[in-house]
Design a protein around this nucleic acid. Sequence first.
DNA 1: AGAAGATAGCTTTTT
DNA 2: GCTATCTTCT
Length: 733
Amino acid sequence: MIYDLNPQQLKAVQEMDGPILVIAGAGSGKTRVLTARICHLIEKGVSPYNILAITFTNKAANEMKERIEKALGSSGVWTSTFHSMCARMLRRDADKLGYGKDFTIYTEQESDRVVRRILQNMPYVDPKKKGEFLWHISRAKTFAMSPDEYFDVIKEVDKEAEIVRTVYSLYEEELTRSNSMDFDDLLLKTVTLFEENPDVLEGYQDRFKYINVDEFQDTNRLQYKLVKLLSAKSGNLFVVGDEDQSVYSWRGADIRNILDFKKDFPEAKIFKLEQNYRSTTSILQAANNVIKNNSNRNKKTLWSDIRDENSVSYYEAYNDRDEAEQTARTIASLAAEGASYSDFAVLVRANSLTRLFEEEFNLNGIPYKVFGGYRFFERKEIKDALAYVRLAINPSDNDSLLRVINYPRRGLGENTVKELISVSAEQDMPIYDVLTSGVGLSSAVYKKLSVFKDIAQDLVKNAETMKPTAFVQFALRRSGLEDFLATSKDQEDVGRLENVQELVNAVSEFEKDNPELTLSDFMQSVALVSDADGMDEENYVTIATIHAVKGLEFDTVFIVGLEDGIFPTQRAIAEGDIEEERRLMYVAITRAKNRLFVFNARSRYRYGQTVYLPKSRFVGEMTGFRQSVRYTNSDYGEDRSDRIKLGANAERSRSVLKNSMSPQKPKAESGGNIDYSAFSVNVQVEHNKFGRGIIVETSGEGEDKIAAIAFKGLGVKRFVLAIAAPNLKIIRD
DNA sequence: AGAAGATAGCTTTTT
DNA sequence: GCTATCTTCT
């Protein structure tokens, strides 16, 4: 054993059999222990074939695989996430559950669209409740309940239980008809597969004699059930987790899985790892001071022997822009002293907070990447392109078909599509089959659809024979999508076309890396990628949500937007449930190795308005760090103009201007004169009922260049100047 | 049927 | 301030 372990780690690793729980504080060498255990098992004669390692992200799975291979020369250990493991098992035995092997995986976006279509046929239900239905469906599935079973449970407390049941069961019908599974299905149907087919379960039980689960605090009931089923025969279940880092309860993760592990397995051995190898003493002190305010946890105190002086600094910014500027300034100066950009991470509570940082980094020439928020494969044009591919692989996939049936435009109207949907439901037949057979369709509609029918059939035919890259290129051409984007007058479509070409590159790369895999494999990998999977070795600053960097570490971390109402969120405060927010703060702090910056802004733009939020209670809880508060008011006079790049907004602003002037008569009226370096112009402004300034009239030099001006200084909250000429500046505060 | 225009509603976090 | 969705116009 040469894994360089401390005594506690070593003990955990050497315990081979039975149920084992390792409580591993942040940075305490959790991954190292997991890897060492697997290597140890193999050295003691366990076949790699008999070992299963489940992680939270694909990236973590790949890294673990690599580490094991590095240590042992070769591997063969099955490492994957819950979802990809289930998908793989289900592909093999989908027929036993009445699914085809080429079932599509629906992400939340697709589930959302399905529910929306269902509600369109239920005019008495408020479509705004869509989110609630999705929540109910997911919860029901996590509890492994059918629509009827779930109805029985909630009927006493929810007066809409009946509607929930209806929507849930229509949703199930539509997914089944579409030969598709959502994320919850992947877990649920695997459990069902095991329960209905003991021989299948036993096959896996015999294979996976040693099961290892990382990030156990983030497992939900179904995931826990799965590992219990899989390990029932061997009894060897090794789980690693930290209840203080449980930040996915909103997605069904059940912290009791880890807190009650002893109850489920009275004979379980429990190990605690409290020495942190990542952060300095004062960073850990801050983390401990925050997390100790939580009550729902097993007490533990992280310690570190990495001494430091003052590695935590706090700064209260004048406003959100100052916060971003201060961040950029700090990074620039540390970089000038020799730090590399990849040493830095800017962590936010919500995606919407990343924008100013992007702007400031652009201005200062700081390379960065944003994680969290929109991902490449969630972009509209990519979804559109992939919908053709998915349809070709799984023609039953109604959602993909509906997504592209009239995109690019093929002259189909709402009524035509509606008829297709209702015939599909009546006949309980995928739309593709309705389309090709013509069953139940009026001849006028059938005729209108023939162009799309031919395309769809062509795609389905070729998907079987062509190689992935060739097929995607074919699909883009045959569908007319490529042509549509290339000839479009819409400026944004140029970028879309580039992204679609980027997709072709991605497929081609996938094909090169995995020559034996099919198009269907590629599509699966797409559905299950996570954000963190895209992180690489290049030299850039990471801007990310805290959730997206869980499990990672950075030399220097900025936690920004620390205001009550943002972090903790307004919702958490209102519901009196901030323990999870606090755990998130704990996760954020413990990402830092050597330097931690904690920022809040006294005022910030939200929702088009300036808001003043008190500094986060978590800042107060941190205590034991040296404050470095600095006020930079003088830099921010009322008339300060800011330089930001002109985006696609100029055109848009023009229409806002036009729109705003026509329908409602603004209430107040006033005028003003502004003089900036770029031009000088006289503006007449009226105020609408929201207090928003609207330009009524402009005159003077540069007038023809102004697309829109909402004006500040005339009793309006803010102003924006957008100028149509692309090389001029937008000036705004 | 499709484009342009007008409005409501929104901000957690994501495998 | 932005976008998704509804409404009106051609």
